[in-house]
């Protein structure tokens, strides 16, 4: 970036702006055709040519899935290997659910399946047909009113970077609604499947304690 003279206007991106599909294929064709800076291909000899013929998507065993997420049914044909986590993020654009380890070791991908907290990274999307999935995007009410647990997380500063937060909140909602928030010790144990590297743990416990009161009243 050039150092501007003072008071020069600029384009900027807001903190919460999303950039959806601003790139399309035509741009790339134009771009690659005119670029002399980078070579166009570094492909391993033979591999690229071989796969263009062989790589038909029909060769991958797939399933047709009716996926019920946040009250909406999505009909998808997906590679059998697709996890619920990758289906949400890569196919339904529901990116609130996060990938932190992909092996059931961090809890960032926690969603509700028929109301119970589970790990979407260790769940095949083909195996949840007909069951109700709830993600972080499905917690607030249609008018935007936050779930009491969400509000309590803000009030008690129960996160820093926010990356584990959707998973923390899904577990916390299950904790409160499943009546498992009887004591701080019970909350801590219940929430121990959700790592928080920023280490907001005491504030998470405080938020759940407060939300429990809110949910009951």
């Amino acid at each position: 970036m050039k150092r501007p003279p003072t008071s020069q206007p600029t384009t900027s991106s807001g903190a919460t702006a999303r950039e959806d599909g601003v790139f399309n294929r035509r741009h790339f064709l134009v771009g690659t055709a005119t670029s002399a800076v980078l070579p166009l291909s570094f492909g391993t000899t033979g591999v690229r040519e071989a796969v263009t013929d062989a790589a038909l998507p029909t060769q991958v065993p797939s399933s047709s899935v009716a996926l019920l997420v946040n009250g909406r049914t999505h009909r998808l044909i997906l590679d059998n290997r697709t996890t619920l986590l990758d289906a949400l993020r890569e196919h339904l654009a529901l990116t609130g659910t996060k990938k932190g380890c992909d092996h059931g070791q961090c809890g960032a991908c926690t969603v509700h399946l028929d109301g119970e907290p589970i790990l979407s990274c260790l769940t095949l999307v083909a195996s949840v047909e007909g069951r109700a999935v709830t993600t972080i995007e499905g917690l607030a009410q249609a008018d935007g009113a936050l779930h009491p647990v969400q509000q309590a997380f803000i009030d008690h500063d129960a996160f820093q970077c926010g990356y584990c937060t959707p998973g923390q909140i899904m577990s916390a909602v299950a904790c409160v609604e499943g009546d498992r928030a009887g004591s701080d010790a019970e909350i801590r144990e219940y929430m121990s499947g959700n790592l928080c590297r920023c280490a907001a743990y005491p504030n998470i416990v405080a938020a759940i304690r407060a939300a429990k009161t809110e949910v009951r009243s």
Binding site: G104, A174, S192
Partner: peptide, 9 residues
Amino acid sequence: AASTQLRHM
């Protein structure tokens, strides 16, 4: 054993 989520699965 494990975690809340894993025990539900």
